[in-house]
Design a protein around this nucleic acid. Structure first.
Lengths: 255, 255
DNA sequence: CCAGCGAGCGAACACTGTTCTCTCTCGCGA
DNA sequence: TCGCGAGAGAGAACAGTGTTCGCTCGCTGG
């Protein structure tokens, strides 16, 4: 209503390299590039101002405006609301975490599926510990508006899903035999997952991935929110052992 | 008086305890009892006003004051700050969740350790789903001030810990053999845990409990924050299968 | 070259948490 | 039984918040 127009923000979060290629993207006018730059500057300032978990990602729009040298109302040219800005940050965060996962996996290229899984889990935990505020942000993106976040989540899942399917197909990894008593996966999710691997993704793969993922993520959650860390001596070590235990127990490796 | 919409109606039911035990608690003066009643009324109003996870347990002190028919400043007679009130709610929530766990376990008294564990996990998830705001609240209690929350957390852990140790001692449950490669548990935690069971609690018990717990809690987290539920057809069913998978994989049952 | 779009400003509104000072009641010790 | 004082609560004030609206201009696309 206020701005009235459809927001071109869809392409905003995609590329930060706009500055690197002034005329690289022909469809973008100078105005658009400026807008993207400003949007990115706002998000960057907002990221810096995000409070660590006690505040749980609290964020003052006015503080962001001060930081970038604008009036609070000017922010509304770029984000519909504070909530909108936070969701944008959450999407970026999810993307960033996904990239960390992928990087960790690629660093272990050629190694066993087990090692790569451990590396990915460790990278995930490290990212969470290094970005506690953004981590907390992703967890407030629920609600009806969070549909896109969920889609991005699936994109985030793509990384381990890709690794898992490729390892399965290569015969370096097997799923246990209980596959007859598995939950059912939604049809559209299966279809979407099949985009990852040309030969498709079995429902059992997704189910086991969710179980493993829950176990890894759960540990990080407990740790980040202060419920477990004080119990164990060396959290780094404890996490890796936990991951190895879960992976060894839930999946079967042929190597 | 001026703006005062009358509030004699909601007058604190003065003598709730007098009927039960007029002189039941000798150490409490009438004033103290009134204060406790008012405190409880404030917390109750606050609980009702807690927003579900999208807001993530946001809470307006002024709204609470309106609800109980007080001035915002009057709340400060009972809680040092908004944060203080929220932490009180978080503690209560943790206690409530612990009670739910214990109730679920006792309802399965006499059954196998496996069944009782499944029941407790299910009860935990149900509690979280039914109290999403309070669930979110517990997760913002980090920081240096959260020491007491952590202690309460340990009290919360007591329930599964008790069950686990008693089942271990009864020989209905065994831990896997990898116990030589387990993380180390802090000494004071071990000492505190030993209060639960007269014969003490082995470090391995705590370590395995944390792993199992992480797996259960992680699933609930993913579900509550909208990252997984849309992937699976029947979340209830999927959760139970996940729990059974984890329990069966991580622990050994003799029955 | 010029019309208009959009970025940005600044004031305003309705909130928020928190702090003070003040009043007056009501419970306790004598 | 009585007086005193602790404590509950009111109300105003302050600083800060998200959001809206109307207003300017400068830049840019045609």
């Amino acid at each position: 209503m206020g701005t009235g127009t459809e927001r071109p923000a869809g392409e905003v979060s995609t590329d930060t390299s706009s500055a690197a290629a002034p005329s690289g993207v022909p469809g973008l006018s100078r105005r658009d590039r400026l807008r993207i730059a400003t949007t990115e500057e706002i998000k960057s300032a907002a990221r810096d101002l995000l409070l660590p978990p006690p505040g749980g990602g609290d964020l003052s729009l006015r503080a962001v405006a001060r930081e970038v040298g604008m009036t609070p109302s000017a922010i509304y040219r770029y984000f519909e609301s504070r909530q909108d800005l936070m969701e944008a940050l959450a999407r970026d965060a999810l993307e960033s975490a996904g990239a960390a996962l992928r990087a960790a996996d690629e660093a272990e290229a050629g190694r066993t599926a087990f090692d790569r899984a451990v590396a990915m889990a460790t990278a995930y935990r490290r990212w969470c510990l290094e970005h506690p505020a953004e981590f907390g942000l992703v967890f407030r993106a629920d609600g009806e508006r969070a549909q896109h976040v969920r889609l991005d989540t699936i994109a985030f899942y793509r990384v381990p899903l890709e690794v898992m399917t490729s390892e399965l197909q290569a015969g370096r990894l097997r799923l246990p035999d209980h596959t007859d008593v598995l939950p059912t996966v939604r049809a559209d999710v299966l279809e979407m997952a099949s985009l990852v691997a040309p030969d498709g993704v079995s429902p059992a793969t997704i189910v086991y991935l969710i179980s493993v993922w829950s176990s890894v993520h759960g540990f990080v959650c407990l740790e980040l929110f202060g419920h477990v860390p004080s119990l164990l001596d060396d959290a780094d070590d404890a996490f890796e052992r936990h991951v190895r235990l879960v992976l060894r127990s839930l999946l079967v490796y042929d190597f």
